[in-house]
Design a protein around this nucleic acid. Sequence first.
DNA 1: TCCGTCTATTTGTCAGACAAGATAGCGCCG
DNA 2: CGGCGCTATCTTGTCTGACAAATAGACGGA
Lengths: 253, 253
Amino acid sequence: MVAALKPTRSNARIRRKLLRIPGMIARDLGVQIVSGRFKPGEILHGEIETSGRLQVSRAAYREAVRILAAKGLVKAFPKVGTRVTPQAQWHLLDPDVLGWIFEFDPDETLLANLFELRRMVEPEAAALAAARRTPEDLAAMAAALKGMSRYTLNSKAGREADQEFHAALLRSTGNAFVESLTAGVGAAITWTTIYKGMHSPRLRDSVPDHQKVYEAVAAQDQAAAREAMGNLVELALRDTTDARRMSKRGQSK
Amino acid sequence: MVAALKPTRSNARIRRKLLRIPGMIARDLGVQIVSGRFKPGEILHGEIETSGRLQVSRAAYREAVRILAAKGLVKAFPKVGTRVTPQAQWHLLDPDVLGWIFEFDPDETLLANLFELRRMVEPEAAALAAARRTPEDLAAMAAALKGMSRYTLNSKAGREADQEFHAALLRSTGNAFVESLTAGVGAAITWTTIYKGMHSPRLRDSVPDHQKVYEAVAAQDQAAAREAMGNLVELALRDTTDARRMSKRGQSK
DNA sequence: TCCGTCTATTTGTCAGACAAGATAGCGCCG
DNA sequence: CGGCGCTATCTTGTCTGACAAATAGACGGA
């Protein structure tokens, strides 16, 4: 629930600076939908009722619903209401939707699916990057690599460097569609780190794996880049599932 | 330009039944943005001005802008206006954005990029499908295949069967993220067909290629499925670029 | 020269009203 | 009695006009 949405002054700082009211509501509803609180086929409560309950204008609430509709999560019809669409129609690779899905403990299957996609795309992306990377791309990857080893994944800066490494690699494919998968890769990486940090105290150092990818890309060796990145994703997946399994067992849930 | 947007009655039927006013405006602006008519960094005209010019209420226009913002095409700030975001932030795999990009003669590079993505994903998807397909999946693919050979790509039904074949295959991976790439694959297929139909009178029959994929999936032979689908995409790409080159040369442009 | 303030402009939000579309139930007619 | 069409009604769709909030840029003071 949104609770006290009207930010007279108190939560004005808490709310992300750039999230206006419709954005907040959309995020809120979006999370409830992707987390199963609202199931496909269900119909959201009426606009007047909901906007009244949230103490926002109907226009603001409508803009929120429009955002969700733009991401394929809902569809609105007169008289029938705003219905949650089946998952097959959701724009799962939309950065916001991804964020909502993985905001809280995400569905195990979906995380596995996301890794499957990484496994398909990233090795080939590395091969493309090896063929097309510019000196600037290389510099960005080198800088990210340096950041990873300097700060480690235990610090925010280190984790951001990890993300940036993969982002730079996808960017250097020169393929706009591949680049648009950055958010998806980032989400998978985030949860790998979270699970590893949560329960396996001694996390395997992933810098050497990244280093190998970097070297292959730098040497413009497509086959080696593909191979190294394949390894990296494979290991990341294993680490994630292992850590997750331990974590689940630990909390006996 | 939207021209006469106010549908007193005349164009009420012409406008796609399910496209409300904000949807129409969003599509219109979206096409102008992805086609380069509005360039990244540029600022859209003010809300009052634009909504006035289009003869719609400001609320309706705002909902349209919200849709575009949800797809990453624009960002709005008070005082500064609504700015077109750099292409790297666009949600290129959003079905609507894809549709807008490929609505008219699309950028050659982008089409090539889309094929690159297909080349990465679809063979592995075929392998996954071979491992996981249910009898129902298989039936759907068989039906689509039958439709392709019965109606050929010269008819609408045949083209839809082609799309459905690939959609069914992606669906049978059991991977929601892979499935969400259906729109992207579909867009690529559409333009392959268009280019082939446009200038190469004798288009290579692609049914045997699809048949091979189907048989491998039916036999649960992952390697064969991967191989067959790799071939199919490769040939489709070659057909597309060939046909396009001929077409361009033909119209001496 | 630099920094804080002030203003103007743009988007953000609100409020209430009416229009349009779709469902369901009612009633007419066969 | 059963099928068909009309109407009542409910929900989203759209319009209008107003005020609030945020910020870029100008202005003025230290």
